[in-house]
């Protein structure tokens, strides 16, 4: 991964780190991009080693996060350009991809990206049935049929803004 040249006098040699995904791929990342992740920043502060192994992030997901970090570390880009990059970044991505991405942002503590991905996931979840949500998140329903029916009734009767909008 190539970083842009700094303008002005070079006070220190541009530092890079290598990040390895759980499936063994290695990524060369500028330190200025890496430290946008609070977790990576902490690791780099604590040890001299320039190789960081992430045992629970796969190469595809890691590549996406690094693309995000590098863009946001680029001082040559305006905030507007970064914002439109963020929108582009999540648009069209499959729900499954977003799930891994949001988990990676949580592990790496990249708060802004976490919100962007969470919002995109919520947008996709809108108007979906419970059954869809369970399937996509691979969750077993642990309610008894009676308990589920009771919650459905309560929810529909007590707090539901659908029917009474202009009434």
């Amino acid at each position: 991964m190539v970083t842009t040249d700094e303008k002005g006098p070079l006070t220190a040699k541009k530092k890079s780190v290598i990040i390895r995904s759980c499936d063994g791929d290695e990524f060369l990342v500028s330190e200025s991009a890496a430290v946008l992740s609070t977790s990576l920043k902490k690791i780099l502060e604590e040890k001299e080693d320039r190789l960081i192994h992430l045992s629970d992030i796969d190469n595809k997901t890691l590549a996406m996060v690094i693309a995000y970090l590098s863009t946001h570390a680029d001082d040559g880009l305006s905030d507007d350009l970064k914002r439109s990059f963020d929108q582009e970044f999540v648009s069209g991505k499959e729900f499954d991809v977003l799930k891994y991405l949001v988990l990676a942002t949580d592990t790496l503590q990249v708060t802004c990206l976490c919100y962007t991905v969470a919002k995109k996931m919520a947008d996709i979840m809108k108007n979906k049935l419970v059954e869809w949500v369970r399937r996509e998140f691979d969750i077993q329903n642990d309610y008894t049929p009676e308990a589920e029916a009771e919650i459905r009734r309560l929810d529909a009767w007590a707090w539901d803004d659908r029917q009474l909008e202009d009434d």
Binding site: V130, R134, I139, D142, Y143, I151, R152, D155, W159, D160
Partner: peptide
Amino acid sequence: NAVSLVCK
């Protein structure tokens, strides 16, 4: 409401 029905 849908989310709260997914699981406990």
